[in-house]
């Protein structure tokens, strides 16, 4: 495999689902490359499609999906073309996922050791039990859990939320996946515990040989952790590029507005109103002709309501989907 070739290539990924109000267009033709050995952050608000994208990658989609088309290539394999056994063989081996809610992601009947050993034995069938336990213990230590031997015997109900998320990260480490998908892994945690988990993920980056797709609604957190950021809105990618460029000078009007909403009020006078984006997120059931952000955009002109802008190069390190990038820059 050449170094330049991305680990995952997503082309024209389109996803629709049935709802009580009609068919919802969840992902609208997503093109995305996940490079090798990279942490890619996906940022978006509710309904942006970020979690659907993650779930499509590991093919854990809900039953109401009516149509899925396009391609998700992991190396030479098109994940969407695999049968259930084929995708199942990749889960926990080449693909792994850390879920948002560490309370429900572990089996309450199994000890921590059992969770970890199961991962090792799935990844390396035939491995000696003692060796699997040894690796489990090493992984528990690597994620900063003290008294490893004792903790291995604990059950999830004896662990705090932060501990459980550490156990899930240890499981992901043990699988040594090519792609680790982390869907809002710190959202359910307290602020000081979130800081611990982010520090841990930063520390562990060098130990992970594969890539991480880190999904979050928190732009600041993503910028802190990820080299590249992909901003989603209403089932489309509106901007993608290296973190520094995007944070220093967001190009797409949505990214700009999002950054403005999140700027700390440090220099602002106390009586100045808080920034927000007028309007509401787009309804996925309603078809959109032009730019998905047009109804809320401060820079909207006629063409924005008629033609959907393509994701195009804007500078050397990023792409954005807006008709007026140059004019408003």
């Amino acid at each position: 495999m050449s170094l330049d070739r991305p680990l995952v290539t997503i082309r024209d990924l389109d996803l629709r689902a049935a709802t009580s109000r009609g068919e919802a267009h969840i992902l609208k033709g997503i093109d995305l490359d996940i490079p090798n050995g990279c942490i890619l952050g996906v940022v978006g608000e509710s309904g942006s499609g970020k979690s659907s994208l993650a779930n499509a990658l590991i093919r854990l989609l809900p039953g109401n999906i009516t149509r899925i088309s396009g391609e998700i290539r992991l190396g030479d394999t098109n994940l969407l073309a695999l049968d259930e056994a084929g995708i199942q063989a990749l889960r926990g081996t080449r693909l792994a996922m850390i879920f948002q809610d560490p309370m429900t992601a572990l089996n309450p009947l199994f000890s921590v050791e059992r969770h970890l050993v199961d991962v090792v034995r799935r990844r390396w069938p035939g491995i000696a039990h003692a060796e699997a336990v040894r690796r489990a213990e090493a992984a528990i230590k690597a994620v900063g859990i003290a008294d490893a031997a004792l903790r291995l015997k604990s059950h999830p109900s004896n662990l705090s939320g932060g501990m459980r998320q550490r156990v899930l990260i240890a499981m992901a480490l043990l699988a040594e996946p090519d792609l680790l998908i982390a869907d809002e892994p710190t959202t359910a945690l307290d602020a000081t515990i979130e800081a611990q988990i982010i520090a841990l993920l930063k520390d562990l980056r060098s130990r992970l040989s594969g890539s991480i797709l880190f999904i979050s609604h928190h732009l600041g957190l993503v910028a802190q952790l990820c080299e590249r950021i992909c901003v989603m809105y209403g089932g489309t990618i509106v901007e993608i590029g290296d973190s520094r460029t995007i944070m220093a000078a967001p190009a797409h009007p949505y990214t700009r507005a999002l950054v403005a909403c999140m700027i700390d009020g440090a220099d602002a006078a106390g009586d100045q109103p808080l920034a927000f984006i007028p309007g509401e997120v787009p309804d996925p059931v309603k078809p959109v002709d032009g730019c998905i952000f047009a109804p809320r955009c401060a820079y909207v002109v006629g063409v924005c309501r008629e033609a959907r802008p393509d994701l195009r190069d804007f500078g050397a390190t990023r792409q954005a989907a807006c008709h007026r990038l140059e004019e408003i820059a």
């Binding site: 705090s160 932060g162 602020a191 000081t192 515990i193 800081a195 732009l219 600041g220 700390d264 440090a266």
Partner: peptide, 24 residues
């Protein structure tokens, strides 16, 4: 510590968080 964690996520002037040890 709480404020430093928040400051580390600030977009305009990201700082380094004080990571507290242990659990609540």
């Amino acid at each position: 510590a709480l404020l430093s964690v928040d400051a580390s996520n600030a977009l305009d002037r990201p700082g380094r968080p004080i990571v507290l040890q242990g659990e609540i």
